[in-house]
Amino acid sequence: MLNLINSTLNLFTPLFLISIGAIITSKSGTLNIALEGLTLIGALFAVIGANLSGSLLIGTLFAIFASVLLASIISLVNSVLKTNPFITALASNMLATALTLIITFSIYNSKGLLRLDIAPLKLIDTLFLGKLTIFLPISIFLYIIIYLLIEKTPFGLELKACGYNPSVLDAFGISKTKLDSIALIMSAVFCALAGSYLSLRQGAFISQMSANKGWYALVIVFLCNSNIKFLIPATLVFASSEAFSNYIQGINNLPSDIALMIPSVFTLIVMIAISYYNKQKQTTIKG
């Protein structure tokens, strides 16, 4: 049982970080499908940075730099070349996959794999919850900051206005493009943190190690109805489904592919349930 709680909390950390990123962009009214790629590129550059400098902290900064760079490219392409934001985001996911594979192949001669030369992220023994990393308290701390930023500051109000009704922003002379870019870049920071957690804890970068977490994060935001208060319980639900998937993989002779199916099926069911609930609510209001 303790094991299950512990692995849930460890799976919770990256998912939570990405979800914070997802909720920032969802506040500004965009469905951010680039999360997956931003996380992946962060995971690779965390290892590259840590190997170059010998410090996990600098590795994480590298990751943030790389993800923010990718996010800036996306928002630049979106605003200057006026592309369809969905397609650009999908493209950035492809770009991230391709770049991680090419970089690991050409520079390190092992396609899709890059080992960390220094000791991976330290696990700290806590009394009741098992071994955890420093990323968990950091993510909670950042969550509180983002909560305050969105709920209590003028910037948060602008962001929310952008999501509700962009034409209001026009009236006040605030640029929607600029807000969108800021939101995207902020979410990139969180994806980078999640990515560095994944690779620095694993002690290696493995291709596709973001494992659709960016997509699950979108559904988590869906689940808490973009209300930032419910983000922790919503993420916990998802993390426990992943922990469960890992758990039964070890315990029974269940084929791994079937166990790996669980999170996506679960996500799908949750999404259908929320859509159903929202629809019901809508019709009640109308009726």
């Binding site: 070349l81 006026k82 592309t83 369809n84 397609i87 493209a91 950035s92 770009l95 391709a98």
Partner: peptide, 11 residues
């Protein structure tokens, strides 16, 4: 990916 990134550009 690069084509994908640019292809919907109305500019």
């Amino acid at each position: 990916a690069i084509i994908f990134l640019l292809i919907t550009s109305s500019t």
